[in-house]
Computed example of a mutant assay.
Amino acid sequence: MTIDEMLAEARSRLDRVDPAGARALQDQGALIVDIRPFSNRAAEGEIPGSVPIERIHLEWRLDPASAHRLPEVRADRPVVVVCNEGYASSLAAADLQRLGVRATDLDGGFRAWRAAGLPVREGPTPAVP
């Protein structure tokens, strides 16, 4: 299987959202999870209210059955995963779905959010370890 096939397979299971849809979900209580590296968040900013979690920790922090999950993670709380442009986030959201998380991703990633003129918080927040 190629990466393009993996991405297509992952996206076939996602109900991806555009920036306005992600904002609406956030306003309804969804958790926005930013998996971008610290350097990207430092250079470009962050979505206000988002939780930065490095990709290598993602499943442990969001698996409802994990002893290491974040306290704000609940089985009924949707999660929108954000990366730079919406590629890595699709793969990550599909992985989270396998764990039973109500996950999707932001089509176009953080850069689409910023281009849509939605709020951006400058300066990086340390990622959840």
Results as ranks from 00 to 15, higher is better:
residue 1 M to G: 11
residue 3 I to W: 12
residue 3 I to Y: 14
residue 4 D to E: 15
residue 6 M to D: 10
residue 8 A to D: 08
residue 12 S to Q: 12
residue 15 D to M: 06
residue 16 R to V: 13
residue 18 D to I: 09
residue 19 P to D: 08
residue 21 G to W: 09
residue 21 G to V: 05
residue 21 G to L: 06
residue 21 G to Q: 07
residue 22 A to G: 08
residue 22 A to E: 07
residue 23 R to G: 01
residue 24 A to T: 12
residue 24 A to G: 13
residue 24 A to V: 10
residue 25 L to W: 07
residue 25 L to D: 01
residue 25 L to V: 02
residue 25 L to R: 09
residue 27 D to V: 06
residue 27 D to R: 13
residue 29 G to C: 12
residue 29 G to T: 04
residue 33 V to G: 02
residue 36 R to Q: 10
residue 42 A to R: 07
residue 42 A to H: 11
residue 42 A to E: 15
residue 43 A to M: 12
residue 45 G to N: 06
residue 45 G to W: 12
residue 45 G to H: 11
residue 47 I to M: 04
residue 48 P to K: 10
residue 49 G to Q: 12
residue 50 S to V: 00
residue 50 S to D: 00
residue 54 E to Y: 09
residue 55 R to Q: 11
residue 55 R to S: 14
residue 56 I to R: 15
residue 56 I to V: 11
residue 58 L to K: 02
residue 58 L to I: 03
residue 59 E to H: 05
residue 61 R to D: 05
residue 61 R to K: 15
residue 62 L to P: 01
residue 63 D to Y: 02
residue 64 P to M: 03
residue 65 A to M: 05
residue 66 S to C: 04
residue 67 A to S: 15
residue 68 H to W: 14
residue 68 H to M: 15
residue 70 L to V: 01
residue 71 P to N: 02
residue 73 V to G: 05
residue 80 V to L: 08
residue 83 C to F: 07
residue 83 C to V: 10
residue 83 C to A: 09
residue 83 C to R: 05
residue 85 E to M: 12
residue 85 E to G: 14
residue 86 G to Y: 04
residue 87 Y to K: 01
residue 88 A to W: 02
residue 88 A to N: 06
residue 88 A to Q: 11
residue 89 S to I: 05
residue 89 S to R: 07
residue 90 S to W: 01
residue 94 A to D: 08
residue 94 A to E: 08
residue 94 A to R: 09
residue 95 D to C: 06
residue 95 D to Y: 00
residue 97 Q to T: 09
residue 102 R to S: 06
residue 102 R to N: 08
residue 102 R to G: 00
residue 103 A to Q: 01
residue 104 T to N: 08
residue 105 D to E: 14
residue 107 D to Q: 15
residue 108 G to P: 14
residue 110 F to H: 07
residue 110 F to L: 07
residue 110 F to D: 01
residue 111 R to I: 06
residue 111 R to K: 15
residue 115 A to H: 07
residue 116 A to N: 07
residue 116 A to P: 04
residue 117 G to H: 10
residue 117 G to F: 03
residue 118 L to T: 01
residue 118 L to M: 05
residue 118 L to C: 12
residue 119 P to E: 13
residue 121 R to M: 14
residue 121 R to V: 03
residue 122 E to L: 13
residue 122 E to I: 06
residue 123 G to I: 10
residue 126 P to N: 09
residue 129 P to A: 14
residue 129 P to Y: 13
residue 129 P to W: 10
